[in-house]
Structure formats: C-alpha cells, structure tokens
Amino acid sequence: MTQLFEFSDVHVAVEDASILSGVTTTIPVDKLTVIAGESGSGKTSLLRLCNRLDVPTSGTIGFRGRDLLELDPQQLRRRVGMVFQRPVLFGGTVRDNFLVADPTASDETMCEVLTDVQLDPAFLDRIGDELSGGEAQRVCLARTLLCEPEVLLMDEATASLHQAATRTLEETVSRLRTDAGVGVVWVTHDLGQIERLAEHLIVLTEGRVRYTGGAGTPEARAALASLATEAED
C-alpha cells in the first residue's frame, strides 16, 4: 500500500548542527499519526519537511509514492495544510483572513468551514486580535480548510491552549479525518494527547527515530515511558 509520507535516510543540518540524522520511517494513509518527542528532538523539523517549508540536507521524502521534491511546492502546500504551534492570524477580520487563503471564497463556503471547526458563522466579522487562543487556532484551521487539503499537519497546535479548547480542536480534527478522509499528522509532546489521538506513532530522540509503529504496542509504551522519564530528569 502506498504510504502518505515515506522518509528514507533523511538528514537535516543547520549551520553544521544536526537536527535530523538518518530518519527512515513512514506515515500511513489511513491512520492518525502522532510524532512525539521532547523539545529539540526534531519533530517540528520532520513535520516541516512534509509541506516543504524546509528541505532535507540529504535523503528522500515520498508523498503518496512520488518524490516530494518533484512536486510543485505551492500546489503541495495547498494539498498538505499546516496549523502552527501559535495561532497566526493576519490583520483584519476572520473574513479577511479567509480571503488570504482563497480570494474567491463565497460567504457560504466561509460559513461552512467555520461550522466545520465548531465556530458560529457570526465569527466572520470578528476582528482576529479579539479572539481567544482557542478560537484563533480554530480560525487558523478553518483558513487552512479553505484550501481543501488532503492532509493536515498539526504542529503542537494545542500547546498554547487550555484543556477545553485543546479537546475541542482534537475532536474537530478527528472528525475531519473520519468524515472527510483528511490525513492527519500531529506533533506533540503531551502524553495525554498522544494517548487520546495516536493510531500510528513515531517517537524521536535527538533527531533519530526511537520508535515507529502502532500506538498501542508494548514497544510504543516503552518509548513513551522513556520520554516521560527524560522529561522528569
């Protein structure tokens, strides 16, 4: 079966510092994949390779069986949407933000994506700066959905949110996956979130893959337990 993403001996180095070293792993099409690891383990760097915001120093990355570097980066980024750690809203209203993603979007389409992320259509005229962190992050997700992505990359997207907002975002994304078939790759170091979301798990330590495979296996638990121990240390 063709994988969603396939990393083969991927290295990333910045100014002689190694960020990822020899990463070889796959992200399946049909499972919500969580990339876990401590801060500085390279998980965000791995995610940023998936929509080509960064490129590897060496190695290859496949997207649905094709070399990712052969694809047009702009088209790829509309197919592979990304929600960042901190909600990034541009100036103006929510509508203005949506028009950045799709200048031709109708009000009807914009209301639909707001409903998809469990926000009232009245949010269209709200000023971005006045939204709470949770609302802003859902608007960011809705803005990404306007590009009709096949895959969502969630880069610690709930790190700055409180628990209720975190759960709402998790439910929204899970529903998008089950209802609309959107692939999801979620980066986090929150063990509770990994427990709730992961169907497939990649654990990184210091830029290397420590574990890759199913989420509920004894090996997966052992890899996560070692992360918890390192965090305590």
Binding site: N51, L53, R77, R78, T144
Partner: peptide, 9 residues
C-alpha cells in the same frame, strides 16, 4: 510562513 503554507508564492 503561514502565508507560504497556504500555497502563496
């Protein structure tokens, strides 16, 4: 980068 991630040039 948020704009680039939306497919902007």
């Amino acid at each position: 980068e948020a704009r680039l991630a939306l497919g902007h040039s």
